[in-house]
Design a protein around this nucleic acid. Structure first.
Lengths: 251, 251
DNA sequence: ACCTGAACACCGTTCAAGT
DNA sequence: ACCTGAACACCGTTCAAGT
């Protein structure tokens, strides 16, 4: 399912995984099929349930067969992260780097990553926390090609190298925090159904302010928050431009 | 080690764990000792290594003995998160809610959480990704008492309920993204030592901008970034105040 | 009251063996 | 060339039994 229409998408970015046998494409396994199936499995049952043996069963094969295509469970998870992040290449809304300037590009990039997080909420914590391959790989922008694309868009828009690097750090921090919290707020109350007679609702009596604001805090403002904070971030980035290229702020 | 000098710290916030036997305090186990030991173990060996059996050995006991004090591994991890977050209660720099106004309070709160993240980098991903008990519990501010404290500080400083809630959401997103990325940048290059003759350095030739900025991106700017972005966040929060309470911006 | 031994079902992973 | 069966070391968890 993922990684559509990008023949050598996984080839460009130094893949975490060895190549594996070339896709015989018809019957039989395939690294792409294994990884895609793993993503599917996590989307459906959650990361906790993913097991080499169960993934094998999901593919109609014994667990041991997977080791032909993946060095082990850890590498499988790395591959899952890679596949999900690579879905960005198939997103038509994100392509074409600089048709509308850097702000437009960063907007589309941010929204593309948000779509990925919302499409794979069970995978995203993995995207967020797997140790990156290099210190300058900052989740959720874990693909060398997108990092390159980001930095080129900024520098070619007039940002200094320092400013582009600072923008990259701010952008990744913003996305990581926002998206992780958005999906965490989503997944609550799902899971094993416990005693329905004990509502498990915490007693808020000792916390009067919290109790008063509780209905307010339970509202889902993720979409608006995302737009507004992204807008604010872009405005703050604008200040990193050399003064000549910075449009006068209306006030 | 954690949870020092706060006798009933874990009593106020609805604990995830049942009480367990009262601490006989001398020899023998104790829920506090089990959780504290787990934190210690993760700090030392990483989350991946933590096993009921190994934690038992670490405490000089068989794994099965732990089940007297903890319902299972999942609850143990919840307890670990709770213990680490509760360290905030022992931080003398964070206490006293509003001596210097809300900005000063949020500064100290943010720095306190940053100290925790840096002190327990192996635990922090757990703080970030464990499913919260309620939708309005937003990591890394996972303690009802601190959420209450935050909201009270804001509302009593003139923020409307809506503004306080928005500030809470923005503050938690900021901290989560920043701290998670700071510790992720720290932990890289540690772990199993592979082939030292193959430096595993990715070939950056296809990514010229990245290659040019690589030394810049490898610098550790976490501390400065944190200060500056926190400052910017607080300034943005100021705009949520009703105009009368908002000091005139200089310039 | 607290801990242990033995047992159960299930992991990840290796490897010789099948086809 | 690709998959499997059997095996190994190790999990989390239960429970009757020890002290």
């Amino acid at each position: 399912m993922p990684d559509r229409d990008t023949p050598q998408a996984r080839r460009g970015a130094a893949s975490v995984l060895p190549a594996g046998p070339p896709g015989s494409d018809r019957a039989g396994l395939d690294q792409r099929r294994v990884l895609g199936s793993a993503v599917e499995f996590i989307d459906e049952h959650g990361l906790r349930e993913l097991t080499m043996r169960r993934l094998g069963a999901h593919l109609g094969v014994e667990a041991m067969a997977l080791y032909r295509y993946v060095p082990g469970r850890e590498a499988l998870l790395d591959g899952v992260v890679e596949v999900v992040v690579d879905e960005l290449y198939g997103d038509p809304d994100v392509h074409l780097e600089a048709t509308g300037g850097w702000q437009d590009y960063l907007q589309r990039l941010a929204h593309g990553l948000r779509r990925i997080a919302l499409a794979h909420p069970e995978v995203f914590p993995l995207v967020a926390t797997r140790p990156p391959a290099a210190p300058w790989v900052r989740p959720p922008l874990r693909s060398l090609r997108w990092i390159e694309s980001f930095l080129r868009a900024m520098t070619s828009s007039g940002f200094s190298d320092d400013a582009a690097a600072a923008a990259y750090r701010a952008f990744s921090s913003f996305l990581l925090g926002y998206l992780l919290l958005e999906i965490s707020g989503k997944g609550v109350e799902t899971g094993p159904v416990d005693e329905p007679d004990v509502p498990a609702t915490t007693d808020l009596a000792p916390y009067p302010t919290l109790r008063r604001l509780e209905p307010l805090l339970s509202q889902d403002r993720a979409a608006e928050d995302f737009e507004l904070s992204l807008e604010a971030l872009l405005e703050r980035m604008e200040l990193l431009l050399p003064p000549r290229r910075r449009p006068r702020r209306k006030s």
